[in-house]
């Protein structure tokens, strides 16, 4: 029993150490040349452009559901007038970044792990090394850079679409007046709410790329190994996003 516990503890510590070394190397490579701009651009398109539809859909439904829930809840306290501000704050501070982060994690973290894992299996990483190309610079750094740069833009779009979703439900289903909803939204708008969400988005981007690359880089050989790496990448990056969300919320808005 104690031996098993000890083995698990040591394995966990080893894993934490390996992740720390990997992330440190990856981050260092983000700031030292050579920079593979073509790779960065490729990943910006892959993460940003191709994730737009799912992020947009998630945001609009989140905004719509939030407006509906707030209407039902606030009616109990005769506070229906606060819906617009709650939707605005809820979307920009929490739901926009977190939902976008989780959706992009599901899409991109798995894709990064699968791509890098397959490159490991098919000796493409060895090929890079024989060409004196640092795999961290060519594979990890461009993904981290593009993910960190792209996520805030995705979240900004998600914020706009999410708030629009709330507006649509409130004005069409719940009989709110268009003018007063817009006025209330504008009056309650605070730049810091949006900015805090964008900072979170950048941190989530780091989690997505970091865990995606890590699990791909150290995937076991064979199809099963790559499959396992893909699953682990999604799980780890989602947990990373939720943990970072709490930490950053406490940092930005904690008492």
């Amino acid at each position: 029993m104690i031996a098993t516990l000890g083995r698990y503890t040591l394995a966990s510590l080893r894993e934490i150490g390996r992740i720390s070394v990997f992330i440190t190397k990856g981050v260092r490579c983000c700031f030292t040349p050579p920079f593979y701009f073509r790779e960065i651009l490729r990943h910006i398109i892959s993460i940003g452009f191709y994730s737009l539809p799912i992020v947009g859909l998630t945001a609009i439904f989140a905004g719509m559901a939030l407006a509906l829930q707030m209407h039902v809840g606030f009616t109990r306290f005769n506070a229906e007038g606060a819906i617009a501000s709650v939707v605005l704050i809820g979307i920009t501070r929490e739901l926009g970044p977190v939902f976008a982060g989780l959706m992009v994690a599901g899409r991109m973290s798995s894709s990064m792990a699968a791509e890098i894992g397959s490159m490991r299996v098919s000796e493409q990483i060895d090929a890079l090394m024989t060409m004196s190309v640092d795999p961290y610079k060519f594979l990890v750094a461009p993904r981290i850079i593009s993910s960190v740069l792209t996520m805030p833009f995705l979240v900004l779009i998600a914020d706009i679409i999410g708030v629009m979703g709330g507006f649509l439900v409130a004005t069409t289903l719940l009989d709110y007046s268009t003018g007063s909803y817009i006025t209330q939204t504008a009056n309650n708008f605070e730049l810091w709410d949006v900015l805090s969400g964008l900072f979170k988005a950048a941190a989530f981007g780091f989690s997505i790329a970091g865990f995606g690359c890590y699990h791909g880089f150290f995937s076991d050989l064979g199809a099963r190994g790559v499959g396992r790496a893909t699953t682990s990448a999604v799980v780890s990056s989602c947990i990373g996003i939720l943990a970072l969300n709490y930490l950053l919320t406490a940092l930005f808005f904690g008492a």
């Binding site: 490729r42 791509e115 490159m119 098919s122 060895d126 090929a127 024989t130 004196s132």
Partner: peptide
């Protein structure tokens, strides 16, 4: 001299190892 060392070689890998992207 690791870069100089590596550039003495070129390798044709078993699975070719061409970059997919």
């Amino acid at each position: 001299r690791s870069k100089e060392y590596m550039q003495k070689f070129s390798i044709l890998f078993q699975g070719n190892a061409l970059f997919d992207s």
